[in-house]
Design a protein around this nucleic acid. Structure first.
Ligand SMILES: [Mn+2]
Ligand SMILES: [Mn+2]
Ligand SMILES: [Zn+2]
Ligand SMILES: [Zn+2]
Lengths: 142, 142
DNA sequence: ATTTATATTTGTAATGATTACAGATTTAGA
DNA sequence: TCTAAATCTGTAATCATTACAAATATAAAT
């Protein structure tokens, strides 16, 4: 996994985003931990490395990254938006107990991306996710 | 379609909800217009019939109805929660242009409800919806 | 019918995520 | 170095929703 700052720099600059120190470090964090973080998650971790960091900068950076298709914004039933460094279409499993988010990459009829039209309506995006109890939480239940 | 107030009364009382005037009228509205309204939508319409109506009552009523499985709360990517009088599992198409919400009832592999376990995680609920341009908006595009 | 207890409604204040905005700082170019 | 543009920062505003307590309505008891 490439998390070298130079590589990250070229990666985001190729997407048309100037690579400021804050943006680089936030991008590094997103690549390192692919855990669908909230703005708060990112802020809490990054402010330790960048003590002057403002939460507004995290919001601005997330919005910019989404706009430039560097990340995807996910909004599950909860309140806070979550961000996904994996932009290719995939779905998620959200644990009702520990609230962890898992990527679902197995080929699943879930995404019938092949239906381009449904009831006469033109599909541009298919959003889907599962909710339930995750593997870990099942095992931890004695 | 049964929208007679007496019928509505027994319907919601069968679900264990006392049928106050506000609750009855709100339920009547939900049954009449099955358009996945927001709290604001409901309030704006109902306050004309019940001038003393408080928006808090609409919130309280929606939360109670959801709790008692009379309606379902839907949260798409937007901000406001929408409410669905149709509680049986089905999916939706949201128009990116006119923001109308359509029910998708056609048998669609989309909902692989049959997978009870995915990657070891126990599925309790499958959430899915499509986004795109709806039939009407396509036709209105000259 | 009058009193009393319980449930519901109402209005306002609080919360929490996100955005708006303007001043401070950094970066890049002349 | 000097200047202009971009970025960052902190605070105030916004907006959906909830918390809460007082007011009202409903039901039960006398
Ligand atoms: Mn993901
Ligand atoms: Mn529906
Ligand atoms: Zn879990
Ligand atoms: Zn439309």
């Amino acid at each position: 996994m490439i998390t070298d700052l130079e590589h990250i720099k070229t990666t985001i600059e190729n997407k048309g985003v100037k690579a400021s120190y804050q943006r680089l470090k936030i991008m590094e964090y997103l690549l390192k931990t692919k855990n669908h973080p909230t703005v708060d998650n990112i802020y809490e971790v990054m402010v330790k490395e960048i003590p002057t960091l403002s939460k507004t900068t995290v919001y601005n950076t997330m919005n910019l990254f989404v706009e430039k298709n560097i990340i995807k914004a996910l909004s599950f039933t909860g309140v806070e938006t979550r961000y996904d460094i994996v932009t290719q279409s995939h779905h998620h499993f959200i644990c009702n107990q520990c609230h962890k988010i898992y990527d679902i990459n197995t080929a699943c009829s879930f995404m019938c991306d092949n239906h381009k039209i449904i009831n006469g309506n033109k599909i541009e995006e298919v959003i889907g996710y599962f909710k339930g109890i995750c593997k870990e939480c099942i095992n931890n239940k004695t």
